[in-house]
Design a protein around this nucleic acid. Sequence first.
DNA 1: ACAATAATCATACAGCGTTTGTTTTTGTTT
DNA 2: AAACAAAAACAAACGCTGTATGATTATTGT
Lengths: 230, 230
Amino acid sequence: MSPRPRKEQRHPDLQSAIKDAAWQQIGRYGASALSLRAIAREVNITAPSIYNYFPNRDALVTALIIDAYTSFGDSQLAARDSLPADQLAARLKAIGAAYRQWALAYPQRYQLIFGTPIPGYEAPFMEVLPYAARALSALVSVIDQLRLQGRLKAENYPSVQPGDEQQFEVWKSFAGDYDVFSLAVSLLVWSRVHGLVSLEISNNLPPFGIHGDALYLYELESITAQFIKE
Amino acid sequence: MSPRPRKEQRHPDLQSAIKDAAWQQIGRYGASALSLRAIAREVNITAPSIYNYFPNRDALVTALIIDAYTSFGDSQLAARDSLPADQLAARLKAIGAAYRQWALAYPQRYQLIFGTPIPGYEAPFMEVLPYAARALSALVSVIDQLRLQGRLKAENYPSVQPGDEQQFEVWKSFAGDYDVFSLAVSLLVWSRVHGLVSLEISNNLPPFGIHGDALYLYELESITAQFIKE
DNA sequence: ACAATAATCATACAGCGTTTGTTTTTGTTT
DNA sequence: AAACAAAAACAAACGCTGTATGATTATTGT
């Protein structure tokens, strides 16, 4: 029966305030501890009020994931553009380094994107696709440049089967007009950095005297040595 | 106030029955939907009764993880031993293939081990170590054999820093007496197959015409080409 | 035979996401 | 200016969760 608060004493942008509180909680207690009621307490509203800004918990999580992808994509694109466009190998390594740096700086965001920390949540593919595509486009653009210059070394790479062209068209409309083969190679490169980083983030890399820094650098060198000519 | 049931009408092995029901639930509704109360309903006991067999929910999850690691380790060791001991490259590929096959056959178990699907749960490292070490030992044993035969190609591999010898000793007591350098190389190999498989399992590999089978085979070939001489 | 132990249950608590119905402010239309 | 519709907040409740407590009873050991 409480009255609706005056406009002045309300939060100016509750939608953002809710997301901020969510990130704060995720950073403090982990993504799995995310709770609408706790967020509401933080923002000084009641839990059902959140439903005025997000239809349900999953929609809030999706919004968080999109924000995380945007932050991640910013980092990837900035790393690529921090080096001249003609130094493709250096750009590739910079993107790889930025990948791990961002993941170590925001491990909770990384797990929110690539792990499954929210019980029962499944990311809506088509909704997230634009932001995921943009984030991956930094890598794909470099690979595609290498391909155009004839410096991409992937002779026996598995052939791309036709069949999902229209989904790829959607992808291109967000990531840029790159060849599908470059995307295919990028997926493997991505899986390598993702493999190492995800193991490191989730503490599944036993610290038996091997440091993540050196191992990751070695893997980046392996990638460039395998996929770049000369 | 209900009496304790007669011995005959009780489940002969409630500890196993609870775990079986848990696996059944994980297989049906996913690991994140695991619920002590639902398990209790399945086994026809009350939820607090589970506490007679597991001190809390996390202990049950740990027991499930250990079972999953055992199943995974069985698969890895069987794959290795399915080929003669002198065909090391073939053994390596068989282990890699078994890795993905097991993951695709039991995606929920895979995510239970390597993901973080249970809210608030953190695996007790020292408790799980023996079973994780055994599972990884199949790969490490082959890598170490290659090293002993001088066929391991990893010249510029990052050096192993001393400092965690005692933890490594514990590891060896469960996995076998292999060189720490072989373990270090195995970690990178593992991260590669893990990267691809985890992306595939979590549906983060967009099906843009690239089939998991072919891509995975290509990656296995890349691994053998990079790390095995001649 | 009797005491101790172990296993089970009912009950309860606090927390969760979500639904429903109500109240009040806000913005628009007449 | 008055009337009205929409939006935004609230309280209360539902069914779910993991877990603690205390009572009760079947089994086991002496």
